[in-house]
Simulated scan of single mutants.
Amino acid sequence: MTFYSFAKGIFRLQFRLMGWKVQGVENMPCEGPVILAINHVSMWDPVVAACSVPRHVSFMAKEELFSLPILGKIFSRLGAFPVKRGHGDMNAIRQSLAILKGGGVLGLFPEGTRSKTGEIQKGMPGMVLLMEKSQASVVPVKVRGTKHMFTKGWGKITIVLGQPLTAQMLKVPEGVENRREWIADRIMQAMIELPEAK
């Protein structure tokens, strides 16, 4: 058993005890490159999202987290890798593409940072670059109830996975100046329109 599988099993048990609800797992492709595009309200979002799908998910995370003495090593062992925010971090892009071109699953928070209001914010077009270069499908994921999870999240954690989106499905109309921004907006809109878990 890998460290990832062990940690995932422990957290899944904890989340079940907390009464989490997961919907749309059948929308997750069983194989091939996939980008999980997840809204971001809490540091627990990657853990909850990874536990909600059957496949191994590698996350891009801000590089500051990897300088923390213990947590940095845990993140690395879980397959996460650092990204320098506010730059075009070519190392992070190359690592992301390597994961996707190897048929893996990449977890992304296209808003770029946590939403202070809980409302889903504008998505960054870098997600579309990865989608196009790797021919990965994008699965929009809406996570709720993770803010103050262990004090206020009991019975409120929900995860909904939407239908996979591909570049072929997101045809950009003529006259659009920034095509990647337009596609990113469509993906974020699909995330916003996901129903609340029942």
Rank of each mutant, 00 (worst) to 15 (best):
M1L: 11
T2M: 11
F3M: 14
F3G: 12
S5F: 12
F11M: 15
L13T: 15
Q14H: 11
F15G: 08
M18D: 04
M18N: 05
W20C: 08
V22D: 08
G24M: 02
V25M: 10
V25I: 12
E26A: 11
N27W: 01
P29Y: 00
C30D: 14
E31F: 03
P33G: 00
V34D: 00
V34M: 01
I35K: 00
I38W: 00
H40P: 00
H40Y: 02
V41L: 09
M43P: 00
P46D: 02
V47H: 00
C51F: 02
C51N: 06
S52F: 01
P54E: 11
P54N: 08
M60H: 06
M60Y: 06
K62C: 08
E63R: 15
L65F: 14
S67M: 11
L68R: 14
I70A: 14
G72K: 12
G72P: 06
G72L: 12
I74S: 10
I74M: 14
F75A: 11
R77C: 13
R77I: 08
G79A: 11
G79N: 07
V83Q: 07
R85M: 07
G86A: 09
G86R: 09
G86H: 09
G86Y: 10
D89P: 04
R94D: 10
Q95G: 06
Q95M: 12
L100D: 05
L100P: 01
G102D: 07
G104S: 08
V105P: 00
G107H: 03
L108T: 03
F109Y: 10
T113G: 06
T113N: 02
T113K: 07
R114P: 01
S115R: 01
G118A: 06
E119C: 03
Q121G: 08
K122M: 13
G123Y: 14
M124D: 09
P125L: 08
M127R: 02
M127S: 03
L129G: 04
L130D: 02
K133Q: 14
S134W: 02
S134N: 05
Q135M: 10
V138K: 02
V138S: 05
V139W: 00
P140W: 03
V141F: 01
V141N: 02
V143C: 07
V143M: 08
G145P: 01
K147R: 15
K147Y: 14
M149Y: 03
T151V: 13
W154T: 12
G155M: 07
G155E: 07
I159S: 02
V160G: 01
G162S: 06
Q163L: 13
P164S: 09
P164N: 11
P164M: 10
T166W: 09
A167R: 13
V172Q: 05
P173L: 04
E174F: 11
R179C: 07
R179E: 14
R180N: 13
W182G: 02
I183H: 02
I183K: 10
A184I: 03
I187H: 02
I192V: 15
I192P: 04
E193I: 07
E193P: 05
P195Q: 10
K198T: 14
